[in-house]
Design a protein around this nucleic acid. Structure first.
Lengths: 250, 250
DNA sequence: ATTGACTCTGACGTTACGTTAGGCATTAAG
DNA sequence: CTTAATGCCTAACGTAACGTCAGAGTCAAT
């Protein structure tokens, strides 16, 4: 188990040192070891991560999305890969059409393509993703980061996100129905998972911020209604659990 | 023959107004008509250009290269398209390999690809183009622009560029051999074409700058040798013609 | 102890636009 | 004919994923 200097890594993977600096800066690949001198040293695990990062990058996935992807569970990763495969498929199809277009153009020696042939290009806009999260909590920094991040989410990203959220809510419902305490170990654990869900998908959310959010869950009708419709008393239960998660941390 | 407002064009082609502004700014597509109000109006011809621009763009060609491409003669354009087709082919091949990779990975359910399988990605560096033009004329603005531009030239761009240059030199040789005058109409016309060649491929070169260059053609051994090897007396002949092209302009 | 290779942190440059911001122009409605 | 409501203008900063210095500290070898 050797560690590699940044220059070695760069040569091994045929990338620039600057790229590694960049990945460090955006938190995509933070080398495990940092010497006192400031020198970065990469472990074998780091190299494995880098390998995957470069694969995803080669597939045209943005670094932002790669970050989310790598944070995901392996099974979810497979789902994402499956979708990515579909995207690559489509990309190939488009290119093939362009290829045909080029062949025709060349064989006819006619540089000007007719208007109807142009239709191939028209539907070329990169997928527009729905801007769902109509964050009702004002114009804070968190909101800015959130909307910046969520911009790049695809439809299936959202599906995964909502799936996770629903699962967590489901866990809470179970606990509530089983008569568990909102301040008990289990509830607090789920509360923590909820916080991490926010960190992963939206913005850096400290336990304290999360507690503030919890306040809103009981204060704001829209949230309360959503929770109560799942199970009466859930809003208060979740809110309690979250606030206690804060206490545990401190 | 109607003219279209910028908004109409944007809707027609499914692009943003900003994009059109941008293409105007970089001189890629300058609308023929500009109202006194400053409003842009696009003619049918403009739309044709735009159509081609978008096609090239869809092929992944940079705006810089598109600019050069469109400035080219139709036959040269066909050559470029042919090469472009090859590039798209390669791109498709690469994607197919990635596709296979993904399939394997998915079927094995193994997220970690082995090191030897990784080789697919390694040769992934975007083509490195030779930095040929070792411009010996110092560190001027022109040099900066030149090296900035030539960076994005592909091997075949360089071929075309040199082909054109050789052709122009050939024309000069013919004139010289035919006993034409270096200050005659024909020589001066070729001189002007030489200047435009520089404008197209390297940097904005005014007749005055060109004349300065001409000075160098006779002063600098390397240039002189190159010209003289084509035909004795050619260096002085070309130099004369260029300087007289300046006189004609003023 | 000094040289040369390696690395560090800024910080600005690049491409192809997106995104306001502030201000005229044009057109439709009253 | 005035007032909105659009449409368009320029200017200028923001974005992604790095490239490219510049100035300075670090490491290994001589």
């Amino acid at each position: 188990m050797k560690e590699y200097s940044i220059g070695e890594v760069a040569k091994l993977f045929q990338i620039s040192i600057r790229t590694l600096h960049h990945y460090d800066a955006i938190g995509l690949l933070i080398p495990t070891i940092r010497a006192e001198s400031g020198y970065r040293f990469y472990t074998e695990q780091n190299l494995d991560s880098l390998k995957n990062i470069l694969i995803y990058r080669a597939l045209g996935i943005s670094l932002q999305r790669i970050k989310v992807l790598l944070a995901q569970q392996p099974e979810t990763q497979i789902d994402m890969l499956r979708e990515q495969k579909r995207l690559v498929d489509e990309h190939i199809e488009r290119l093939k059409k362009i290829q045909q277009q080029l062949e025709q153009t060349l064989s006819k020696g006619d540089l000007m393509m007719k208007k109807n042939e142009f239709s191939i290009i028209e539907g070329f806009d990169p997928d527009k993703y729905e801007q769902e999260v109509v964050a009702s909590w004002g114009d804070t920094d968190a909101y800015k980061e959130s909307s910046r991040r969520t911009k790049s989410y695809s439809k299936s990203d959202w599906q995964r996100c909502h799936q996770q959220r629903d699962d967590l809510n489901g866990e809470m419902v179970q606990l509530l129905r089983n008569g568990e305490s909102a301040v008990g170990e289990q509830a607090i654990n789920v509360a923590e998972k909820m916080r991490q869900h926010i960190c992963t998908w939206y913005y850096q959310c400290s336990p304290a911020m999360h507690a503030q959010l919890a306040e809103m869950y009981v204060a704001d009708d829209r949230f309360t209604d959503a929770y109560e419709s799942l199970n009466p008393g859930l809003a208060a239960f979740v809110s309690q659990a979250i606030k206690n998660n804060l206490n545990r941390v401190n």
